Simulated scan of single mutants.
Amino acid sequence: MTTTDPHDVPTAAQLVAAVRDFLQTDVLPGVEGRVRFHTRVAINVLGMVEREIELGPAQAAEHARRLADLGVADDAELAAAIRDGRLQDGAALTAALEAAVRAKLEVANPGYLTSG
């Protein structure tokens, strides 16, 4: 957070983390069945939101750079270029697609990125 940010602390990410921690620490141990399942879903969703707030801006900038390097403006144009054969399969395309999937997993479920 910089001195020009319009919001005081806690930040949105800190608020999300606090709610996630509350659910995980105080609520989850005391509930069962359907409520327990939905509490776990809510904990996972809040974790995703927290990671997107933290990682999203840098990921968006990197993604835009990768798309520009491939000569396309957005994901729809990338898909059309691949489908139409305007982009050939190669190291640059593969690296861009792998980086895009990695960024999605870093937000959605970073546990999938650990080698086991």
Rank of each mutant, 00 (worst) to 15 (best):
P6Y: 14
P6Q: 02
H7F: 15
D8Y: 14
D8C: 12
V9G: 07
V9D: 11
T11V: 09
T11S: 15
A13P: 10
A13S: 08
A13D: 15
L15D: 13
V16S: 05
V16N: 02
A17C: 00
A18Y: 08
V19T: 01
V19W: 10
D21Q: 09
L23A: 14
Q24G: 00
D26W: 07
L28H: 15
P29V: 10
P29M: 11
P29G: 14
V31E: 03
V31W: 09
V31Q: 02
E32L: 05
R34D: 12
R34S: 09
F37Q: 11
H38R: 12
T39A: 10
T39K: 04
T39V: 13
R40S: 08
V41E: 04
I43K: 14
I43F: 15
V45K: 14
L46V: 05
G47L: 04
G47N: 02
V49S: 13
E50A: 04
E50D: 07
R51F: 00
R51I: 06
E52T: 07
E52W: 13
E52D: 14
I53E: 01
I53S: 06
E54R: 10
L55H: 11
L55R: 15
G56L: 09
G56R: 13
G56D: 04
G56Q: 08
P57F: 03
P57R: 07
P57H: 11
P57E: 04
A58C: 01
A58Q: 13
A58Y: 08
Q59V: 04
Q59I: 06
A60C: 08
A61C: 13
A61M: 13
A61P: 02
A61G: 11
A61F: 10
E62T: 12
E62D: 15
A64Q: 14
A64R: 15
A64V: 10
R65F: 05
R66M: 04
R66A: 09
L67T: 02
L67S: 05
A68P: 12
D69P: 03
D69V: 05
L70T: 01
L70Q: 01
A73M: 02
A73S: 11
A73C: 03
D74P: 06
D74V: 00
D75F: 03
A76P: 01
A76I: 01
L78V: 00
A79Q: 11
A79W: 05
A80Q: 09
A80I: 03
I82G: 03
I82L: 08
R83G: 00
R83N: 03
R83Q: 06
D84V: 00
D84N: 12
D84P: 09
G85P: 07
G85Q: 01
R86E: 08
L87H: 02
D89P: 05
G90Y: 01
G90K: 02
A91D: 11
A92K: 02
T94F: 01
A95C: 06
A95E: 14
A95R: 15
A96L: 03
L97D: 01
L97S: 03
E98F: 06
E98N: 08
A99E: 12
A100T: 13
A100P: 02
A100N: 06
A100D: 10
V101C: 05
V101T: 12
V101N: 03
V101M: 05
V101Q: 12
L105V: 10
L105H: 10
L105R: 06
E106W: 03
V107W: 06
V107P: 07
